[in-house]
Nucleic acid binder design. Sequence first.
DNA 1: TAGCTCTACAACTACTCGGTGGTACAGTTG
DNA 2: CAACTGTACCACCGAGTAGTTGTAGAGCTA
Lengths: 108, 108
Amino acid sequence: MVPHPLPEPLVELLAQRFRVIGEPMRIRIVDALRDGPLTVNELTVRLGGTQQNVSKHVGVLAQAGVVDRERAGNHVRCSIADASVFELCEIVCGGLRRQASELEELLA
Amino acid sequence: MVPHPLPEPLVELLAQRFRVIGEPMRIRIVDALRDGPLTVNELTVRLGGTQQNVSKHVGVLAQAGVVDRERAGNHVRCSIADASVFELCEIVCGGLRRQASELEELLA
DNA sequence: TAGCTCTACAACTACTCGGTGGTACAGTTG
DNA sequence: CAACTGTACCACCGAGTAGTTGTAGAGCTA
């Protein structure tokens, strides 16, 4: 599927993408949008933190194509644009589970 | 599979994991190890850069459980410990492809 | 033993980036 | 029109970290 060895520009793109979802606040935003669109204000209230900070992170996620921003009157509705983020989290969690069980087995 | 909403500690773990593979040099290391173990020196020659820097990044990857380090005489053999990294790259590349095709369609 | 190679650690510099405060702009309400 | 709300942009500060230099230690070889 993916070329090997990876060409340098693709390496940069991959790294950038992983960096985007490598921030706790952004993971929380994506997780909050999992069961439906929310406005920036609703995200701010739900996740805590300042409106500026939430808006900034939503901007980063939008530029990366992870979320979608759409003006609705005075609000901005944020929604998931690329649901593969959840797959990524699933896979990483799987790896974490494997490590945990290996550690547990080692201590048994 | 994954709890929702994500508990805060898990969010931190996920973010940390994504950060680890969010560096171009570390992606190159993992990619180089794709078709077999290599020593730190071989990685240094193949990827360019200083031995110290490669060793440092290998250390980060090893601590995260992504690669394995094993002394073999005077060398250290590095190998992939968690092959799910490649899955992650595949998924991200899939997302990139989708975006590219959408952009192409938009311009058609 | 002496000398060489391979690896890892520590300290330093420079850069990136998350969080905050201030503010501008658009839309709504009175 | 004026006042308020929701959002985004800008500048700044501080923390984290990538890359470099220097060096120590371990293993091989003569």
